[in-house]
Design a protein around this nucleic acid. Structure first.
Length: 346
DNA sequence: AAGTGTGTTGAG
DNA sequence: TCAACACACTTG
């Protein structure tokens, strides 16, 4: 079987991109794999013996015709073909390939249709589901045609409501998280102004305030949970004088306690669940720590140990960045950020 | 017999 | 990396 090498570490890097480009349109073509375009004569029994039936190739990537008119799906990795099963219809085989492509090649793997899930949330969820399983497991589901069911089932299993009490929510959320945006903090973001400027485009997209309303000028209080499960509350408002969106009250405390420096990166996340809970995380300025470190520098500033239950500590330098994050690292929740770190580390 | 997936090759 | 093709092997 070719499935033996399937479980190696992910081979390709994935770039973070909100909307991966689609593969070209794939207009439906009916019919079986047997090309009969100009020969509608039904093959009956014996003619097939002498006639060499030409299999019509698939319009879909990763899909190959089978002699009986069905379709096979396959993906290549490391010189080897990984067989993904056979299917009665071409598009189904193509979707199967797509799933494998995402699992094997990351978010930006070329696909026939993806993203199928129209909502970002769904897509984020599906991706975390993929990464949470080994390649072999995914391939197995695909071959047995149970992938979709298992995905749904896992959604259902997660589906329970997270009761948000007055306190912190459970720090280990199972639900997938969607990265909203990163910001490299400027000197003024960590300086005396006690505010963080949210780039306008991101502010309007992710933290909309009714423009001109009193709410906008007075601001609203937003809660963000950090990797350690601690909740930070910031005032978020619009400063008309500078025409900018800012986090004010509460921000300086975050800067102080996290020892944020200019050049560090703050990232914002949102849970994909119905609660739309917000998260904040930060990481050190990779370039700066690269410069100041004495021993062979670590590539990864976040000493993530586990990724969706998969121990990747051997793949990542554990000595971490130059500033400690303590036990927070162990508690770092599943997230696309982690996925990116993971992919990029390989 | 029907269906599946591998061996192999050559193109890109 | 990818699909085309032939055919051995498996399954019902």
């Amino acid at each position: 079987m070719e499935g033996s090498c399937v479980d190696e570490a992910l081979s390709h890097s994935a770039r973070r991109q909100q909307t991966p480009p689609h593969a070209s349109e794939a207009p439906q073509r009916m019919g079986s794999g047997v090309s009969a375009v100009l020969d509608p004569t039904p093959e009956s029994g014996m003619e097939a013996v002498s006639r060499k039936l030409k299999l019509s190739s698939s319009q879909y990537k990763g899909v190959v015709p089978q002699p009986n008119g069905r379709w096979g799906a396959q993906i290549y990795e490391k010189h080897h073909r990984v067989w993904l099963g056979t299917f009665g219809n071409e598009a189904e085989a193509a979707r199967t390939y797509d799933v494998a492509a995402q699992r094997f090649r990351g978010r930006d793997g070329i696909t026939n249709f993806k993203p199928l899930s129209e909502s970002d949330d769904d897509e984020a969820y599906e991706f975390s589901f993929l990464v949470a399983h080994s390649k072999a497991e995914i391939v197995d589901m695909l071959r047995k045609h149970t992938y979709h069911d298992e995905l749904q089932q896992s959604k259902r299993a997660q589906g329970g409501d997270l009761v948000v009490g007055r306190r912190t929510t459970p720090r280990y959320l199972r639900s997938a998280r969607l990265m909203l945006f990163d910001k490299v903090v400027t000197p003024s973001d960590v300086g005396k102004l006690n505010r963080l400027v949210i780039p306008k485009q991101h502010a309007e997209t992710y933290f909309p305030l009714e423009s001109g309303s009193s709410v906008a000028s007075k601001g609203v209080l937003l809660n963000f949970e950090d990797a350690g499960g601690r909740v930070w509350r910031f005032r978020y408002s619009y400063w008309s004088s500078s025409q900018s969106f800012v986090l004010t009250k509460g921000w300086s405390r975050f800067v102080r306690e996290k020892k944020l420096k200019a050049g560090d990166v703050v990232s914002f996340w949102r849970s994909t669940g119905p609660e739309k809970q917000l998260f904040i995380d930060w990481r050190t300025d990779v370039i700066a720590s690269f410069r100041t470190m004495t021993p062979p520098p670590t590539v990864n500033p976040v000493p993530v140990v586990k990724l969706f239950g998969v121990d990747i500590s051997e793949l990542l330098p554990v000595n971490g960045g130059d500033r400690k994050r303590g036990r927070e690292a162990e508690l770092f929740p599943p997230s696309q950020f982690v996925e990116q770190q993971f992919f990029e580390a390989l």
